[in-house]
Design a protein around this nucleic acid. Structure first.
Length: 422
DNA sequence: TCTGGGGTCCTAGGACCC
DNA sequence: TCTGGGGTCCTAGGACCC
């Protein structure tokens, strides 16, 4: 075996974050809701045991939650992001070769650690992260990222593993693959699982036995890569430096149904500002933007309407002074009177590095001035909050604002405020 | 009454070119 | 009956991830 990866995955991450600063929640069922308190996106073990399903609409589980005394939280991404960074800082002490894969998962490349006591190494992480951050984790180790995922999943499920599983012995790997449903493999979703079942493939082990040609035919080369990884052949590298995004999308469902263009314009202007801010943060400009507008997918008694419009920009930009008016113009072009709208958003694409943008010959020379203004705005907003400077068109009514009636206090931000005040 | 918000990659097919 | 043979670029759609 030449390669070795560890996957460290935070247990019930959002629920664990809420618990980390509020020990009275230990042992209690917790759920965290999506934006607008729409559906359940995280559950503590106790909440899972009550039968509350991932992704369930909250209105369907509310009665049960109230009856069982479930602690309910609106999602607080600023807080979870802070906690995620704290966990990553600890993991960085274990290896410089760290890939922060998502808000609650990191891969560690242990390439040359074959000679060390892997069990003890993994157990060390398992013990230290919760002690320092309050967030419990599970650790899976194996020779490919996909197998490390399998190991991690079993580490969580198996009482014997107790949060840590090292899969390096071929017999252990085979046993692990036999008890892993193919749909639970990283890269194999529900659709493929259903299709594979038609061919008698039910477990990860079944998949490894199929010829490459079969897998490629039915699951493209992406699926083939997954199968090879399950066989122990590394195909997916660690990505230590996050690639700049090729598309950036900012959208929200409205807190209530909207019918007036003006209210929707306020929402879209705010989304566009946030989107442009993300664009500048990765030092990019976009060449095109797409605005979309939708009614509810669920309100079947009302007429539905979905539309979008793409605008090619004269030259790549990250300036709100260009993007906001263009987005609003696109919105006005697709807005129709008489529908009950639920969501709008913007996607920017054709993304290029900001330092490679060439100005069009015929364009008035606003670029420099815009850039300086955007820098000033970014700095003000990062210091005083994103609502400290905004455009008139964003309005102050905020009819579109999200409903989140179960928000926890922002513990980490508050902590930093206290430190700053000292 | 009430159903999230981001992203990625691959493939097929059409338009168009020589 | 036969109906060239490549290329490239773009887009829509389908699959996946957290």
């Amino acid at each position: 075996m030449t390669s070795l990866f560890a996957l460290v995955d935070c247990n019930n991450f959002y629920a664990s974050c809420e618990r980390a600063f509020n020990p009275t929640l230990n042992g209690k069922p917790i759920v965290v809701l999506s934006n607008n308190d729409g559906c359940v996106i995280a559950r503590s073990g106790e909440a899972k045991a009550l039968g509350i399903k991932m992704g369930a609409p909250y209105f369907e589980v509310r009665d049960l939650a109230e009856k069982e005394g479930v602690h309910v939280f609106s999602s607080n991404y600023e807080f979870y992001g802070d906690m995620s960074r704290r966990v990553a800082l600890i993991l960085q002490e274990y290896t410089p070769n760290l890939e922060i894969y998502s808000i609650d998962e990191s891969f560690l490349d242990l390439g040359n650690f074959l000679h060390v006591d892997l069990e003890g190494y993994a157990r060390g992480i398992w013990e230290r992260v919760p002690r320092t951050t309050g967030i419990p984790v599970a650790v899976g180790v194996s020779s490919t990222k996909t197998l490390a995922k399998v190991a991690n999943r079993l580490a969580k499920k198996s009482a014997k593993a107790n949060g840590v599983l090292v899969l390096t012995d071929p017999a252990h790997i085979e046993a692990a693959l036999k008890r892993t449903e193919v749909g639970d493999v990283w890269g194999v979703g529900r659709r493929y699982a259903k299709k594979l079942a038609q061919y008698g493939i039910y477990t990860a082990h079944d998949l490894t036995l199929k010829p490459d040609s079969f897998i490629k035919k039915h699951m493209t080369i992406v699926g083939l890569r997954t199968a090879r990884e399950l066989r122990g052949e590394p195909c997916i590298d660690l990505e230590m430096a996050p690639q700049p995004k090729q598309n950036i999308c900012t959208s929200r469902s409205f807190g209530e149904t909207l019918t007036e263009l003006k209210d929707i314009e306020e929402a879209l202007a705010a989304h566009t500002v946030r989107c442009a801010t993300k664009l500048r943060k990765q030092q990019s400009c976009c060449s095109a933007l797409t605005v979309f507008l939708e009614t509810s997918r669920f309100a079947l008694s009302y007429q539905m309407y979905f539309n979008n419009r793409t605008v090619q920009l004269e030259s790549p930009t990250a300036s709100e002074l260009v993007l906001v008016p263009q987005a609003l113009e696109a919105l006005r072009a697709i807005f129709r009177q008489g529908f009950r709208y639920k969501k709008t958003g913007i996607i920017v694409s054709g993304i290029v590095p900001a330092n490679q943008v060439q100005q069009s010959l015929f364009e008035p020379d606003h670029r420099q001035r815009d850039q300086e203004l955007m820098q000033a705005l970014d700095s003000l907003r990062s210091r005083y909050g994103h609502r400290s400077v905004f455009y008139g068109v964003q309005g102050t009514g905020g009819k579109w604002q999200m409903q989140n009636s179960h928000l926890s206090p922002c513990y980490t931000t508050r902590l930093e405020d206290l430190i700053r005040a000292k």
